[in-house]
Write a protein that binds this DNA or RNA. Structure first.
Lengths: 351, 351
DNA sequence: CTGAAAGCGCTAACAC
DNA sequence: GTGTTAGCGCTTTCAG
């Protein structure tokens, strides 16, 4: 009945049960058990199947990934790598939405999500050198464009599929970019501000450089062309007080603009605080906008006008795209862009 | 020179290089390459080592986790499983800090972090049934105590080490609990409120039940004993407007208390908004406190008084604890509690 | 419908 | 310091 029962059965104490243990106990071959596990129902009689299922239950058997991985040459895991100076690399509502979307999208198809944060390309190099433990990588990177490109390049050279999130790059092997239409979103909200009479706009960007922010600035400038003037400053988005100080400094130096276009909601909220401290009424004297429509946007008073980002959907899309690529042929498009929409608030005047 | 060069070398086109490819190219045995990779420097001469390193570089070789995993009976990965109804399961600053701390702590020791979110124990059952792909699991679960205990029980039966985060349970095999001292933190901030004259306190908890919240309520009640009266309501923490409405309702029904003790910062901020809408001055008429000291706490005006949680440190501690357990003997304590500290703000009056 | 054999990449143990 | 052997758990292939 059993294949090599003597030694195997004896060892049964500590180690977890294997396919062979199940096969032996159920009195069938390992292949039959494997067929049951993988739902190849055509190849197994219902009676056999039932018996094997019971044995699996009784033994508490769970397939071990390593064996299958080795045989199938597949890790059944996908990496999400975040390149960002802050070691608390998930402290950003955008990233957590992407991560949750990916995790759920992958789990639906039997894949796991391995999350890593590295401060820069050196950290990435160290991470990558260790071991190849995923079938594909999704990356979201901050920093100046050359730094980001070095990051993507390093990852693309690994000979595994790459998903670049929130950045648009070309010429990389086996790579697909997943974006949201930041330019259009920034354009839409800027147009709303201009329609309400905004003529001098202050675009406030974070210190940490993100590609999405660059696109938003382009969208703002395109919408403003000939209709409004755009200035730009930077601030530390992680520290509200410091952000407020930067915005107040700009007010002092160049006067209070008609509108502050925040590169994200955090910054927009800082602008509201800055205005409040100066006694500048929002939106009557100063309009303010944010970006991303995070949950904590509700903390602002008045409610900040923003743009809703499909971050969770991007995560899901990346998951699907990467698995399809791994299990199928190749990426069929080099780039996917998801739409954004206005998230109305009370910090833009009615036209 | 090579072992089975004919077929192997020929196949070199598509598949990634293996240990054997490196060994063949460098003219040494696979074991020698393995020794180089694993820094067993004593066993390899410097010249050989250098040559092999060069070959690895030239071939772009990276060890494949599946082979090592199979041989070593170890996945080199640890799971973080979040049990929570919201499919956006990472939308909580506390969890993202824990996750980042774990990820970094694990990466330092060559382990990966696999993140999963499930809505309830049924989802967990499905997740767990699939495949065993981690060496240990850390879990953070919401829901009533019996539900949570069922979750821990299911996980503990998997015969792998378990870390229970932010909950205190006993009697589980191979399990360690990682907590922060919520009771002490809640006690400290409640005492500050009482010292400032607070006599009627309203504890506002979220709808979703978390063990940490239960401990905070106990801490509040212990500190209030005989010195202040404590009432409790619940609200939807994810929707600020709805939270504000719940708090206003309580004000209307039972009058405005001396202080609102928010179970977390989000809720405390909702209380500030509620007070503002009623024209109740904070902190002069109503004191307000939060919990966790999240970054967005700064969005509140006035700055909410809170308690700082060591969430990132908990993540790191869990990572270390689990790896030590996997690589060493067993957990040497059943529970670890990290201290919290006051995060001063402007919503408690000076005594 | 079921079974036997071979091998995926890696390393512990033991030669030499 | 270096090489050889064996086998971890699983599935593809081919034979019944």
């Amino acid at each position: 009945m059993a294949r090599k029962p003597a030694m195997k059965a004896a060892a049964g104490g500590g180690r977890p049960p294997t396919l062979r243990d199940v096969a032996d106990k159920a009195g069938v071959s390992m292949m039959t058990v494997s067929n049951v596990i993988n739902d190849r129902t055509a190849r197994v009689s219902t009676t056999t199947r039932t018996r094997i299922l019971a044995t699996i239950e009784a033994l508490g058997y769970r397939p071990q990934r390593a064996g299958r991985s080795l045989r199938m040459q597949r890790e059944y895991a996908i990496g999400l790598t975040i390149v960002r100076p802050d070691r608390r690399f998930l402290n950003d509502p955008y990233l957590t939405e992407v991560a949750a979307g990916m995790s759920n999208g992958l789990a639906d198809r039997g894949y796991g999500l391995m999350i890593n944060g590295v401060p820069d390309i050196e950290g990435l190099r160290r991470l990558v050198a260790r071991t190849s433990s995923v079938d594909a990588v999704a990356v979201v990177a901050s920093g100046p464009r050359p730094h980001r490109e070095a990051v993507y390049d390093l990852l693309a050279r690994l000979h595994q599929p790459l998903a670049v999130i929130q950045d648009d790059v070309a010429g990389l092997a086996d790579t697909c970019c997943y974006l949201q239409d930041d330019e259009a979103g920034a354009g839409m909200i800027t147009e709303a501000v201009i329609a309400a009479g905004g003529r001098s706009l202050l675009f406030v960007a974070p210190d940490t450089i993100w590609p999405a922010i660059e696109r938003r600035e382009r969208g703002v400038r395109a919408a403003a062309r000939r209709k409004a003037k755009v200035a730009r400053i930077h601030c530390d988005e992680a520290d509200l007080e410091s952000a407020i100080a930067s915005i107040l400094l700009a007010f002092d130096r160049h006067g209070v603009p008609d509108a502050v276009i925040g590169a994200n909601d955090q910054i927009g909220i800082a602008a509201i605080h800055a205005a409040t401290r100066r006694g500048v009424p929002v939106p009557d004297r100063l309009m303010v906008t944010g970006f991303n429509d995070f949950a904590f946007r509700q903390f602002s008073a008045p409610l900040i006008s923003s743009v809703a980002s499909p971050a969770y959907a991007i995560g899901e899309t990346v998951a699907r795209g990467l698995i399809d690529r791994i299990e199928g042929e190749r990426f069929n498009v080099p780039r996917q862009t998801l739409p954004v929409s206005l998230a109305p608030g009370a910090t833009i005047r009615s036209p």
